[in-house]
Design a protein around this nucleic acid. Structure first.
Length: 641
RNA sequence: GCCGCAGUAACUCAGGGGUAGAGUAAUUCAUUGGUAAUGAAUAAGCCGGCGGUUCGAUUCCGCCCUGUGGCACCA
């Protein structure tokens, strides 16, 4: 038997090495600098500690600190170092879990007094000390009994619970760094020193043990970690950039909307915000008209019994607003539009010839969202859905679903959202209807997805209580994901609410109902657009499109003349004839995110021109008034016109 | 809903057991100017609400409301 094995590198080169060699030794054989740089090894597509012995022929790749794959390991190491720092500073603290996450890591601690922001600098300082010492990470395999005994003795109840719940066949591995140790699968780097300085503790938060609100609340510390300080700096700057785009901040600055104490989760739309909101509705209405939808409107208050019949009451009564019973009847404020839509459908006898019937409604719904969930326009208690219910036959599900998918993607493109992901969710635990019906609904939706050829990910158990659903997640200008559109195949509610149609054979049948929303919540979508565009709305959406600003009062008359002509041509225009310097006016209107500022003075008045300046540009352009009007008329058209 | 943090002038924020502060905005006056802040003066506050401690609370303590960062939830 040979004591040699063959390792193959990513570039296809291979070499014969002694059996039982580890990644560090391989790196050293190649070069000293590589050995210094390396932190882990990929063996046949799984990542291991650098010191892991290789016993068989394998494809390997040395992971250097500068590699993309290093991030996860650095972050996980950071979590361990933070836990050590915390336990050395606050010995009464129990550790639980501490994974790496997007952009960083966290660790959940159990402690009587939750940590506060003011504890972070101390912990961070201690972390730097631990990193500077350069404690070696070492891996050990323990027996289950040994591990349980050890953590029990230490009073680490959560760790004991974790070990007890591990798969009995799984090896129990412990990672030590200096004196401190943790139950962990790894991998880790060689030394804490390799973490470097590219990390920062960010915030503290409460988090339930094992993500279950029935369990104890732990105290979680979040950190961000990168390969070097420059990357960290970069990340912090990105956070700042996102804060600048915050729709709550911009909404105030642009005078779009406000919230107040008396209406938690309710939006007060100001004239400009409402203008934007209406532009979106008008756009969607046109798109729907062209896609053969009809539009309806149904009552906000419906007898509670209707919600019991639909099944909403059973699942969501806790989250529904109801009226104070002035008579026997209790009314519920609608949290969804579907029962109303079915009632409209049920008026008059429907034939298979009427199907598919695509019925839209810009319905305002109210949901009692948990107080902690509220967030600006993104999560409110009263919002407007661009809802529609497509009544169709089972045979039509695939085609109709495909049409909806195409419509959604086409609409998102009009706002510059080209990166859209689709999630497919199937039956949840708490649901209505027989499994055979669910089988049919899920199968139909899957077939529809096949027909579109679009890629999707699978979200088991996340469907609506009446049917499986698709969710459309779009990525904005700075790479954040927002879940907006949805399509749900419902073979349950139409039957429960008594909808029928007469089929070709003269028999009454129950139609299928597809629920779909494209923007989802208009309020939320407005918020997303504000952040996506950083307040720089395209001309067609901008509530104020043009400001005509005078240089001196001499040009007031001309300014009003320009404003009138633009207004007559459908451009939302204001004149600013205040006794202020032009620089002041430019600054103010730029801050208010007005897309186009026209400065007019003596010269412009004489020549019938304007001096045009666009938001975000320092350039000025002198243009003839009539040319400007025809250009802006074109530019301000919505994408559907 | 749970854990942490916050609430002071229209806005952004400082302050702190003894009559409340700044910048911006507003109002008035002067200034008529060429592309991101002209100058001066004036006025502006139940210091989120309710209780408690105290001679005295905007400040300290408790409860509540709202917001906020997470967790949980999201038809």
């Amino acid at each position: 038997m040979s004591d040699k094995i063959t390792i193959t590198f990513p570039d296809g080169n291979f070499r014969s090495v002694k059996k039982g060699i580890n990644g560090f030794e391989i790196a050293e054989e190649i070069s000293k600098s590589l050995a210094k740089e390396s932190i882990a090894i990929k063996i046949n597509s799984s990542i291991f500690d650098l010191k892991t012995r290789i016993e068989k022929d394998a494809k390997i790749q040395i992971i250097k600190k500068s590699d993309e794959e290093a991030l996860d390991i650095i972050r996980h190491d950071c979590a361990h170092v933070m836990a050590e720092a915390v336990q050395s500073l606050f010995p009464e603290t129990q550790v639980t879990i501490g994974p790496s996450i997007e952009n960083g890591f966290y660790y959940d601690f159990a402690r009587k007094e939750p940590f506060t922001l003011s504890d972070l600098p101390k912990i961070e300082k201690k972390m730097h000390e631990i990193i500077n010492i350069g404690e070696k990470f070492t891996r050990e395999v323990w027996s289950r009994e040994e591990a349980i005994k050890f953590f029990k003795a230490k009073g680490e109840d959560y760790k004991v619970e974790l070990i007890e719940d591990l798969d009995p066949n799984e090896e129990i591995t412990i990672y030590k760094q200096g004196e401190w140790l943790d139950l962990c699968r790894g991998p880790h780097m060689i030394s804490t020193k390799q973490i470097g300085k590219g990390f920062k503790l960010m915030k503290v938060a409460g988090a339930y043990w094992r993500g279950d609100s029935n369990n104890a609340m732990l105290t979680r510390i979040y950190g961000t970690a990168w390969r070097n300080e420059k990357e960290l700096e970069n990340h912090l700057q990105q956070i700042e950039e996102a804060e600048k785009r915050d729709h709550r901040k911009l909404g105030k600055e642009m005078d779009l909307f406000h919230f107040q104490e008396e209406a938690p989760g309710g939006v007060f739309w100001h004239p400009k915000g409402w203008q934007l909101f209406q532009s979106l509705i008008n756009y969607m209405r046109l798109r729907q008209d062209r896609a053969d939808y009809v539009e309806t409107s149904t009552p906000e208050l419906l007898d509670k019994s209707l919600w019991e019949t639909s099944g909403h009451w059973e699942k969501f009564s806790e989250n529904m607003f109801t009226t104070d019973p002035k008579e026997e009847k209790v009314f519920a404020i609608k949290p969804m539009n579907c029962p109303g839509a079915v009632e409209v459908y049920k008026q008059g006898l429907k034939s298979y010839r009427d199907l598919p019937l695509r019925m839209a409604e810009f319905g305002k719904v109210h949901r009692y969202e948990p107080s902690g969930a509220l967030h600006g326009l993104m999560r409110v208690r009263a919002f407007t859905q661009d809802d529609a219910h497509i009544f169709c036959t089972e045979d039509q599900i695939t085609e109709e679903s495909k049409i909806v998918c195409d419509l959604i993607l086409s609409i998102y493109k009009d706002f510059g959202f080209n990166d859209v992901r689709i999630k497919f969710s199937d039956r949840p635990e708490k649901r209505v209807g027989d499994d055979s019906v669910w089988d049919k609904a899920e199968e139909a939706l899957k077939q529809a997805m096949e027909a579109t050829g679009l890629e999707y990910t699978f979200n088991p158990g996340e469907g609506a209580f009446y049917g499986p659903k698709l969710e459309f997640v779009l990525r904005d200008a700075i790479g954040r994901d927002w879940q907006c559109g949805t399509l749900q195949v419902d073979l349950n509610l139409p039957g429960r609410l008594g909808a029928t149609y007469v089929a070709e054979d003269g028999q009454k049948k129950i139609p299928v109902m597809l629920h779909r929303a494209l923007f989802g919540s208009l309020e939320r979508f407005t918020g997303i657009l504000i952040e996506h565009y950083a307040g720089h709305l395209p001309l067609w959406l901008s509530p104020s499109q043009v400001v005509v600003a005078t240089i001196t009062s001499e040009s007031n008359k001309y300014a009003f003349d320009v404003k009138d002509q633009l207004s007559k041509n459908g451009l939302r225009t204001e004149a600013d004839i205040r006794n202020e310097k032009i620089g002041y006016k430019i600054r103010e209107h730029s801050n208010a995110k007005i897309p186009i500022i026209l400065a007019v003075g003596k010269k412009e008045a004489e020549e019938k021109t304007v001096s045009l300046r666009r938001l975000g540009s320092q350039e000025t352009l002198v243009v003839k008034l009539d040319e400007l009007i025809s250009d802006l008329k074109k530019e301000s058209l919505s994408p559907i016109n």
